[in-house]
Design a protein around this nucleic acid. Structure first.
Lengths: 121, 121
DNA sequence: TTTATATTTAACTAATTGGTTAATTAATAT
DNA sequence: ATATTAATTAACCAATTAGTTAAATATAAA
């Protein structure tokens, strides 16, 4: 998993891990807090592994407090993704703007045509 | 690969695929155009597979023109990522703002102290 | 009809991923 | 000292991924 950006994208490509980040966005949480919503679906070692993936990607950091391991969200890798996304902004905004632009285009063409010919059809 | 968002993140977690998207952001390109920068590093079938991953994630669409397969970039899945990112904006902006905020804090504390006591140290 | 170009499919492989259960470590409480 | 709670590690497994080479398909050109 060569580069940082790839590692971050890979870490985010799992719904369990994204849900963990969502919980951490509400504040610091222990491993068992983070595990709770998933313990019907998977074991605690599976949770540990998911958290290790997030930690290696730098998306969270784990500290120590007695036998607990409070985790917190780190924004930096998300900043890298956001920066990478920037170069595609025109493309993902386009999917919204396409209709609006199209309408403006046909409207102004119609207006120009009307100006040229005095009327339409 | 359950959900769309996971599929998109997974597709983006590879530098070859991201480079292909970068090229497509400059305009439509055939498979062989997209392959060119990588043919020293991998075979053509490998390229085909990467493009299939991008296509299944909806990030590109392939059309037919004689024996060529022109590909173009689709912004919609990137919009989904951008929307998902929004909920973490405070965290990834924080990594920038932290120092600025800190400096403002100590500065205003210093000013308040100076006002209270007439001077500092 | 053969040949050349562009691309994909098939069959295979090694490495990685996401999960498991059982055992282990770390810290606290009895 | 022992038991309890929190979390990790080890060893294993099945599915997926990212690549390979060889063969096949699609279209155009000679």
């Amino acid at each position: 998993m060569q580069d940082h950006l790839s590692q971050t994208f890979a870490a985010l490509s799992d719904p369990t891990r994204r849900a963990m980040l969502a919980q951490l966005s509400k504040g610091k949480a222990n491993v068992s807090d983070l595990a709770k919503p998933f313990l019907k679906a998977m074991s605690l070692p599976a949770i540990t592994k998911h958290l290790q993936v997030l930690e290696k990607a730098g998306l969270i950091s784990k500290t120590r407090e007695a036998q607990w391991r409070p985790c917190e969200l780190n924004g930096a890798p998300l900043k890298n993704i956001s920066d990478w996304m920037e170069q595609y902004r025109e493309f993902w905004e386009e999917s919204f703007d396409r209709l609006e632009v199209y309408l403006k285009t046909v409207t102004s063409k119609k207006i120009m045509k009307e100006k040229k010919h005095g009327r339409k059809k």
